[in-house]
């Protein structure tokens, strides 16, 4: 296996299959993410984006398939190996997941205190730099509960950046924020990417954000990749679901049922919903 720097791709996913019980959530997903690009995973609620993200950061183990991070097989690694890889990745959680009992400074300093032997004075300076970076200079002693949602997201980003990661994951960065604050977060994502040449993976369903930040987009539907490419390529797509998503049209009942049957029968063409199909083996 080549060393980290020789590899063109930061993340490679091959035929990923994820199941909850006997329900298949991701079904043969493959893609590659280049170093330094912002890759957006797009899709409606319940189509497997969050599951995909949880697999990429190793919070879940897939049923089948392979994930390589910096050329190393992340899925086959021991827990100790995964811990090492995780020091080089950062993640911003949807609800920011800051430790509520700790001040912002302590939150940001936590990975440094756990993983490095830096002096407390150095950690203090680094913490200030990271908080300054996300526009929260002067808020070191605040508790997460004393901040607004947008500020918490920023603090979560500062914490994710604490160890100077190579790859950063964002789970729904603009969910629950007003458009102005959400735009601020988008700008921050861009800034991080351009300043530090970070590889960014963003899970979202906000088309407005996607237009601002995405280099490439992959669109999930029912656990499969429906379309992948640059935003322009997707916008020019004539796939009805891609169009529907871009034009923000609601599902029509007829269409939904049609699609459901198609999913059941493995993609064979079907124009009108026939009589109720028996579900195999249940």
């Amino acid at each position: 296996m080549g060393m980290e720097q020789e590899n063109e791709y930061a993340i490679e996913v091959e035929d990923l299959v994820v199941r909850y019980g006997d329900q298949t959530v991701l079904d043969g997903v493959s893609f590659q993410i280049r170093r330094g690009e912002t890759f957006v995973i797009l899709g409606g609620s319940g189509h497997g984006k969050s599951t995909l993200l949880r697999n990429l950061v190793g919070l879940m183990r897939p049923f089948a398939g392979r994930i390589r991070i910096n050329g190393q097989d992340f899925t086959a690694m021991s827990d100790a190996g995964r811990m090492e890889v995780r020091k080089k990745i950062g993640m911003c959680f949807q609800g920011s997941a800051l430790f509520n009992s700790m001040s912002l400074a302590d939150n940001v300093a936590l990975p440094l205190r756990e993983h490095t032997k830096l002096k407390e004075s150095t950690i203090d300076i680094m913490t200030r730099i990271k908080l300054e970076l996300v526009g929260l200079g002067g808020y070191e002693d605040y508790l997460p509960a004393e901040l607004s949602g947008g500020m918490r997201k920023r603090a979560g980003l500062a914490r994710a950046m604490a160890m100077d990661p190579e790859i950063i994951f964002y789970d729904e960065p603009s969910a629950g924020l007003d458009p102005i604050v959400a735009a601020g977060i988008d700008m921050l994502i861009r800034k991080m990417q351009s300043t530090f040449n970070l590889t960014s993976v963003v899970v979202t369903h906000e088309m407005a954000s996607v237009k601002l930040i995405a280099d490439r987009v992959c669109m999930l539907r029912h656990g499969r990749i429906l379309a992948m490419g640059t935003l322009d390529e997707l916008a020019a797509s004539d796939n009805p679901f891609v169009r529907q998503f871009f034009e923000r049209r609601p599902d029509e009942d007829q269409e939904d049922r049609d699609d459901y049957l198609r999913a059941l029968t493995g993609g064979s063409e079907r124009t009108a919903p026939g009589p109720q199909e028996p579900e195999d083996g249940r």
């Binding site: 430790f99 756990e114 993983h115 160890m163």
Partner: peptide, 13 residues
């Protein structure tokens, strides 16, 4: 609140 997940992702046991 996903704080346990956050620890995990940070590589903190």
């Amino acid at each position: 609140a996903e704080e346990i997940d956050a620890l995990d992702v940070m590589g903190v046991n």
